[in-house]
Design a protein around this nucleic acid. Structure first.
Lengths: 236, 236
DNA sequence: CGAGGAATTGAGAAACTTCAACCGTGGTGG
DNA sequence: CCACCACGGTTGAAGTTTCTCAATTCCTCG
């Protein structure tokens, strides 16, 4: 569970004793295969889930089956902290790649947050950042064109993965099918493919075999109009 | 401040003593004129703001000046609870109509949430619901077409205003210019106008002189694919 | 070697944008 | 009191972006 500890430390000033209380509350983990559903819309899960390894995603579909992805859940991310308070899931969580998921009983979260204001604050903070990211996604989908949308998403993932040292030489893993990418930026698969080609030919970014290569992140950021402030990462 | 109390009661099971602690912490309120900026991107406000009367909005613009609205803030809504923990604003809050805004010192929120877990939880809950709404907006903008997007937005506002008894006979106030509507659903003003016309001619909804008329909310909900579950309103 | 899924590409259609003209209304100043 | 201006909204025409659908290629896996 050190991924969770690490994540909380990048956001808040939670201290070691509180951290270990939280990480020790974690029950054993379980693996999920690519594409499998971890929690379903309407569920009332009794545990809060934490990604240990792999990529998961929040998503929801319209009546006519058009899917939208709301978030990529990277190692250390909490999948469904809301069900601690809100009880009922209003969207799906599924595995974008094979992944390992840990469980923390809902009741544990509730009592911990009652007794340890600092833990409550750290977790609350996670939600605040998720929310800020979501706002940026609304802006992205609502007000940017295809190529910039994709570029912006790449910049965001680049920044988040850099914070956990998962980017080397502008190269990082993105173990998801293009259809999932399309569902996150609100484009059709066909148009996504064309836009990726354009980005590649412009030398801005390449997505190939589940690996993203960014030759010059500054240039990509400028192209996308990306400003990392909304991620609220502590500088290090 | 009873609007805030009312809102918290519609979401959580916070009790009267805690409620009054919170509402008494409120400093005097101030009026803002339509269009004025209440808090700006990048600010580090020392107070948390609460809408008492009128409509405000969260928004942010791209470099090239395309604006996206993220939320309508109705009476009782907290504008910027995040700055209690996150310190720096990552978007703007502005007045959509003339409105009355109350202030709660940031430090008060921090100490209250430290000492009263139930208050912390109620406020946290507000964020969780905001987040759920935001997810639905991403889906709306990313995966629905113009007319359904607008219809969905109307359904949502209808539901939220119904919860605070502000809808009478399917009629409710929406004191904002069409340009603001366009900026919330990610459309141009021209196309928004055309889509509104289509909705009107289909007898689904009308927006005229800042008033929305919905002859048959069920029909509009069916058209928009609207399911209020994501609002997490307690039934009453 | 063949089958099946994912990605690419092309062609035509649909959704949406831009720009400009136009309308109505409400407010302001002469 | 009226003329005029400014502003928000509507509409038309042309252009752009994105979508759909289908054909094709590519790759992986059996």
């Amino acid at each position: 569970m050190d991924v969770l500890a690490r994540k909380l430390r990048t956001l808040s000033d939670i201290d070691e004793p509180d951290l270990s209380i939280l990480t020790e509350a974690t029950k054993t983990a379980r693996g999920f295969k690519t594409g499998s559903v971890i929690i379903r819309d309407g569920d009332r899960p009794s545990d809060v889930h934490v990604v240990l390894d792999g990529y998961a995603a929040r998503s929801k579909s319209t009546e006519d089956g058009r899917r939208q992805i709301f978030a990529y859940l990277l190692p250390g991310d909490l999948c469904d902290l809301h069900v601690a308070l809100l009880e009922r899931m209003d969207h799906d969580i599924s595995a974008l790649s094979d992944c390992e998921i840990a469980f923390i009983p809902r009741t544990t979260i509730l009592s911990l947050t009652n007794e340890h204001p600092r833990i409550a604050r750290a977790l609350w903070m996670c939600n605040l950042v998720d929310e800020a990211v979501l706002r940026e996604w609304v802006l992205n989908v609502g007000r940017r064109e295809a190529e910039q949308r994709i570029a912006h998403l790449f910049c965001e993932i680049h920044a988040r993965l850099t914070a956990i040292d998962l980017v080397v030489d502008g190269i990082f893993d993105l173990p998801i099918p293009q259809a999932a990418l399309a569902d996150t930026v609100g484009l059709s698969g066909a148009h996504l493919s064309r836009s990726l080609k354009a980005l590649r030919e412009a030398g801005l970014a390449e997505f190939k075999e589940h690996i993203v290569t960014v030759p010059d992140i500054r240039r990509l950021q400028r192209f996308a109009g990306f400003d990392p402030a909304y991620l609220h990462l502590k500088r290090r």
